[in-house]
C-alpha cells in the first residue's frame, strides 16, 4: 500500500509502463473483477486499461492520484462493455464468479489463527454476496470508496455523477452490505 501511496501524484511514472503495471495491476484487477464478476474478462479489461492509460498519458494532469486516474479509465471501459452488453453481469455470471472461499486461502497463514481465518472468510463471503445484490452504480461507488479509498468528490468526478447522488448510492450500498454482513444492529 505504501508503494502505491509513494508513487501517487507523479505523472512521470506513467512513462514507465512496466513499473505502472507492476504497481497497480493487482488493485486494478480487483476493482474490475468485483465490478463485473467475471475474472477472465476483468483481465482483458485491465490490460485495455493500461494500454489506454499509457497511450493517453499526456492527458494526465496530475490533479488526482495515478490510481484514481486508472480507476476512472476502468470505470469508463466497464461502462462501455455494459452498453455493448458483451458480457453478463453478476447475476448471470455465477458460473465464472470469484470463489472468495478459495481466495481466503491466499491470506498469509502466519498473520492469523485458523479460527480467525475462518471468520475472515465468512465475512468476506457475506460482503461478496451483498455486492451481487447491488445495482451497478451502487457497486461501483462502494468499490471505489472502500476498496480504492477514493474521496467522494473523486468518485463523483470519475463517475460523472453529482456528489449527492454518489452519497445516496453509497449510503444504500453500505446499508445493504451491512445488513447482509450482519453488522447492522
Amino acid at each position: 500500500m505504501n508503494t502505491v501511496r509513494d508513487a501517487e501524484r507523479t505523472g512521470s511514472e506513467l512513462d514507465d509502463i512496466e513499473a505502472l503495471v507492476r504497481t497497480y495491476r493487482a488493485r486494478l484487477l480487483r476493482f474490475v473483477t468485483f465490478s463485473i464478476g467475471d475474472p477472465d474478462l476483468a483481465e482483458s479489461i485491465t490490460q485495455d486499461c493500461f494500454l489506454k492509460a499509457y497511450n493517453g498519458r499526456a492527458s494526465f494532469r496530475g490533479d488526482c492520484s495515478v490510481n484514481t486516474w486508472l480507476t476512472s479509465i476502468a470505470v469508463n471501459l466497464i461502462r462501455d462493455q455494459q452498453r455493448l452488453q458483451k458480457f453478463r453481469f453478476w447475476r448471470q455470471a455465477r458460473a465464472t464468479a470469484i470463489d472468495v472461499t478459495e481466495a481466503a486461502s491466499f491470506l498469509p497463514s502466519n498473520e492469523c489463527s485458523p479460527e480467525t481465518r475462518m471468520l475472515v472468510r465468512e465475512r468476506a463471503q457475506q460482503v461478496q454476496a451483498a455486492l451481487g445484490s447491488l445495482s451497478d452504480k451502487q457497486r461501483t461507488v462502494f468499490l471505489m470508496r472502500f476498496m480504492e479509498e477514493m474521496e467522494l468528490s473523486e468518485i463523483a468526478a470519475a463517475t460523472q455523477m453529482p456528489l449527492n447522488t454518489v452519497k445516496t448510492h453509497l449510503h444504500r450500498a453500505l446499508k445493504s452490505v451491512r445488513a447482509q454482513a450482519g453488522t447492522s444492529r
Binding site: L29, R30, A103, F106, P108
Partner: peptide, 27 residues
C-alpha cells in the same frame, strides 16, 4: 468496518495471486 476490511484483504490476496499468473511480458 470489519467485514469490509476482511473482504478487502481477502480480495487483494486473491488479486495479487491472479495478477502474478498473468503474462509477465504484458507491457
Amino acid at each position: 468496518r470489519q467485514p469490509i476490511e476482511d473482504f478487502k484483504s481477502v480480495t487483494m490476496a486473491w488479486s495479487e495471486r491472479r495478477s502474478a499468473t498473468m503474462p509477465t511480458n504484458l507491457p
